[in-house]
Amino acid sequence: MTKIHTTADLLNDKLVDMAFITAFSGLSDKWFYKLIQSGLFPKPIKMGRSSRWLRSEVETWMQQRIADSRGT
């Protein structure tokens, strides 16, 4: 289910690019694009030819992976 973000949410968030995501995770962009295609990573926000993600969604995704790997 997609979360509807309020204006306050967006003002307190930041848009990040794939370079940020790969540096943050240590994983390749190709791996993330495969996850996006399979619905396992948030879809990008398209701005012309650029793709961006809400930092909070990337961080939530990462926190869930950590919790899943630790059985919590």
Rank of each mutant, 00 (worst) to 15 (best):
F41R: 07
M47W: 07
A67S: 14
I21Q: 01
K46Y: 00
I21W: 03
L40T: 03
I21G: 06
Q37E: 07
K3D: 12
I45L: 15
F41G: 08
T72D: 15
T6D: 01
I4V: 14
A8Y: 01
N12I: 01
F20T: 08
P42M: 03
Q37D: 08
H5F: 14
G48C: 13
L27F: 14
A8W: 02
P44S: 12
R70G: 07
Q37N: 12
Q63Y: 04
T2G: 00
I36T: 10
F20D: 09
Q64M: 00
V16G: 05
Q64Y: 01
S51W: 01
A8E: 11
T7V: 13
S38D: 03
A8K: 10
L10N: 11
L11E: 12
A19F: 05
K46V: 02
W53A: 09
D13C: 09
T60P: 05
L11F: 14
D9C: 00
R52C: 06
G71Y: 10
Q37M: 01
M62C: 08
N12W: 03
K30A: 12
L40C: 10
Q63L: 11
K43G: 12
R52N: 02
W61R: 07
S69K: 09
D13L: 05
F24G: 11
M62W: 04
R49M: 01
W61T: 12
M1V: 14
W53L: 10
L35Y: 06
D13S: 09
R55P: 06
T2W: 00
L15M: 11
T72L: 15
G39F: 00
I21L: 03
A23Y: 10
M1R: 12
S38W: 01
R70E: 13
K30C: 02
K30Q: 06
I21K: 02
F24I: 10
L40A: 12
E59D: 12
S25Q: 09
F41W: 08
S28E: 07
P44D: 11
S69F: 04
I45C: 07
I66T: 11
F20H: 11
A19M: 06
I66F: 07
M18R: 07
L35P: 07
W53M: 10
R65A: 05
T22R: 06
M47F: 12
R52A: 10
M18K: 07
N12L: 05
N12M: 01
K34S: 04
S50A: 14
L10A: 12
K3F: 06
A67N: 13
G26K: 02
T2N: 01
I45D: 05
L27D: 10
T60N: 15
R49P: 02
